[in-house]
Write a protein that binds this DNA or RNA. Structure first.
Lengths: 212, 212, 212, 212
DNA sequence: TATGAATGAGGTTTCATTCAT
DNA sequence: AATGAATGAAACCTCATTCAT
C-alpha cells in the first residue's frame, strides 16, 4: 500500500500537530457510540463518559454537539476521498473507472458502518447539512463520479442524451438504497456481487433486447 | 375521478365514525408544521398551539409524539396506496405500468412535500421505523413495483437475470435520490421530465449501443 | 350465620335504595385494582376502564378520587364493625373478649387484603385521614377494644396502673406490625397462631418469672 | 459526647469528600419541606426553590425524586445506627439494654419529626420500599433489638417460648403506634414516660398477678 | 489542558377534573 | 344515568451548554 499514513493516524490530526488526547478520545467515543445507536439518541453526557473526560471538554474542542459529528464525518471523508482518487489511478476507460468507483463506494459502506450510518441515516436529518462543510466534501466525492460519466460521454461509450448530473443521481441513489437496508438491519453487504449486478443494470438497462 | 371519497375525508376517519374534532385538528396541525420544519424541531406545545387545543389532548389520541407522526404517515400511505392501485387499472403491459408507477411515485413527492419529507428525511431517522406499522405499509407500496417487474419478466419484456427485488431497490433508490434534492432545497420537481429520463435510463442503460 | 344481609349486598347500598349500577361498578373496580397496586398508582382512567364506565361518571358519584377511597373504606368498616360486635356477643370475661377481638382483627387482615392494605398502608398517607369520616369509624372500632380493657380493669383481671388508652395503642400497634409484613409481602397470615402468641405476650409479658 | 463527628457533618458527606454545596442544599431543602408537608405534596420545583438551585441539579445528584427521599432517609439511618450502638455501650443486662433501646427509639421519633414522618408515614407507601436500600438499613437497626432479646433469653431473664423475631415485631409495633399519633397530630412525645410505661407493659404483661 | 459545579430552557407526559349533551 | 370531548396545571425529567478555577 502506497499510503505512508494510516487511517488511524489521520483521525488523530496531522502528523506534526496531532490532536490533544482529550479531543481524540471524544471523537473516538462518538465513533464507538455510533456503532450502537443513533446520533440523536447519544447524549453529551454519554460521550463524555465513554471518552473518560468531562462534558465541558467537548465544548473546548467542538462548537457544539453537531459540530462534533460534522468533524468526525469530515475526518472520514478526508480518508475516503484520498482512497478513492488513489484507487482510480491507473485504470483505463470510463466504464472500468465507473465500475471501480461503484465498488469502492459500496465497499466503504460495507466495511465502515459508522461512516455509512452517518451518511445514509443521520446526515440528511440535519436541515443545515446541505449547507455544511462536510456536505461540500461529499459533493467533491460525488463529483468524481460525474467526471467519470463526462469522460465516458467524450469517449463515446456513454450515451450523451442524459445529463451526467442526472445519471450520477440515479447511480448514487441506487447505491445508497442497496446499502441502506444492509446498514439498517446490520446485514452483510457484498461489494463484489452488488457491483456486478448494479453495473449490469446501469450499463444495459432492464429491458430485454429483442431477439436477433 | 371515480373516488367517491375525497382524500380530505380520509384524513378525518371513516365516514360512519369520523375522528373527533380535536384529533383532526392535531393531525392537521402536524401536517402544517411539517411543511416548515423538521419533525424533531417541532414541539408538542407548538402542535397544540397550532391546533388550538391543549397539549394533553394530543396524548388522549396518540400514544406519544412519535405515534402521532406514525399515524399521520399511515393516513398518507392509505391514500396513496389507493391512488396507486387505482392509477394502474386499465394499463396494459408491464413497461407501461412501470412507467406509470414511476410517474405516480415522483408525482406524489413533487406535490405532497409533507409526505415526501416524512418519507425521505424523517422516517429513516427513527431507529424503530423499520419495524413500525407504517413501514409495513410502505412495503406494500413498493411490493406493487416488484410485482410489475415480475409481470414484465413473465411477459418476456424484462430481463430475467436480475432479481425483481434487486431491480426494485435500484429504481426506488433512483427515484428517492432524484426527489430528495428537490425536497431538501424546495425546488420544483417535474414528474413528466424525471419519469421520461428515468425510464429511459432504466430501460436501456447508459452504455451507448454500438453503431450498426 | 345470623346475618340476614350478606356483605356483598352491603357494598351495594341499602336494600331499599340500592346503589345505581355505575356506582357499584366503580367501587368494585377500585377494590379489584387495590388487590394489585397502591392507591396512588391507580389512575381514574384505570378505574373507569376497569369499571367499564367513563371517567366522568366517577365524579357523578364521588367528590373526587380520595372520596372514592374513603367511601370504599367506609363500606368495609361498616361491615367489620357489625361483625365485631356480633362476634363478641355471648362471650364472658374481659380476657376472653380480648382474645376474641384480637383474633377477629387479625382474621380480617388475614382474609381481606384490600381492606388491610387501605388501613395499614394507604390511609395514614393522607394527611387529612385523621380528620376524615372513615377515621372516626376506625376509632369506634378501636374503642371497642378500649372498653374491653376497661371492663377487665373493673373485673380486676387487668392491671389498673396503665391507662386503657395506652394499652390499646400497644395492642393495636402489635397487631398491625405483625400483619403488615404479611400484607406487604403477600404472605400467609395465621390468625390462630398469631393470636395465641400475641395474647401470651400481652397477658404475661416477656420477663421470665423467678423460680419459686 | 465521644462523637468526634457531628451529625450535621454526616449529612454533608464524608470528611475528605464532602458533598458539593448543591447536593447539600437540596437534601436540606427536602428535610425542611418534610417538616411541613407530605412527601407526595412536595414538588421538585418546590425543592429546588427552597434549596436555591435549579430543578435540573436535583437530577444531577439523585436518580429521581424518590431516590432523593431514599438518600435522605439513608443519611438519617446512618446517624441513628451509630447513635444506637454508641448508646448501648457500657450497659449491662439485656433488660437494661432493652429499656435503653426503647428509649432511644422513642427519643428519635420524639425529637426528629422529619425522620419520624418518613419512617412512620411515607416509607411504607412506596411499594418498592420493602426492597429498597434504606429498608435494609432499617432491618440492621431493628436487628439490634432482636439481638438484645436473644441475649436476654440466653441470660435467662427473657422467656424462651416466644421467638425473638416475634417479640421484636410486637415491641416495634407498639413503639410505632405510640409515636404515630404524636407525629400525626404534632403533639409532644415524652420518651421517659412512654418508655417507662411500655417497658412495664412488655416486661410484665397486662394481667394482674393473682394475690398471694 | 481539563474539571466540577451548576444552569436554562424546554420537553414530553400524566392525571384529576369539568362541562355540554 | 351516563358519555364524549376537552382541559389546566403541574409533574418529572433531559440535555446541551457555560463558567470559574
Amino acid at each position: 500500500m502506497p499510503n505512508n499514513k494510516s487511517n488511524e493516524a489521520l483521525l488523530n490530526g496531522s502528523e506534526e500537530r496531532p490532536y490533544p488526547p482529550g479531543r481524540i478520545k471524544i471523537a473516538e467515543a462518538l465513533r464507538v457510540l455510533l456503532r450502537e445507536k443513533d446520533f440523536g439518541a447519544i447524549t453529551t453526557a454519554e460521550i463524555a463518559r465513554t471518552a473518560g473526560v468531562t462534558e465541558a471538554l467537548i465544548y473546548k474542542y467542538f462548537k457544539d454537539k453537531r459540530d462534533l459529528l460534522h468533524q468526525v464525518l469530515a475526518e472520514y471523508l478526508e480518508i475516503y476521498l484520498r482512497t478513492t482518487s488513489m484507487d482510480l489511478k491507473g485504470i483505463k476507460g470510463a466504464l472500468n473507472k465507473l465500475r471501480k468507483i461503484v465498488w469502492t463506494h459500496i465497499h466503504v459502506y460495507a466495511t465502515d458502518r459508522v461512516f455509512a450510518k452517518i451518511l445514509l441515516i443521520e446526515a440528511r436529518n440535519f436541515s443545515d447539512y446541505y449547507h455544511s462543510e462536510p456536505y461540500k466534501r461529499v459533493r467533491e466525492y460525488t463529483d468524481v463520479l460525474r467526471e467519470i460519466l463526462e469522460e465516458g460521454i467524450e469517449e463515446g461509450v456513454i450515451r450523451d442524451d442524459l445529463s451526467p448530473a442526472f445519471m450520477r443521481q440515479v447511480i448514487l441513489g441506487a447505491i445508497e438504497q442497496l446499502c441502506l437496508t444492509g446498514v439498517v438491519f446490520n446485514r452483510e453487504i457484498s461489494p463484489d456481487e452488488l457491483t456486478e449486478n448494479l453495473c449490469d443494470f446501469i450499463f444495459k438497462g432492464i429491458v430485454k433486447p429483442p431477439r436477433k
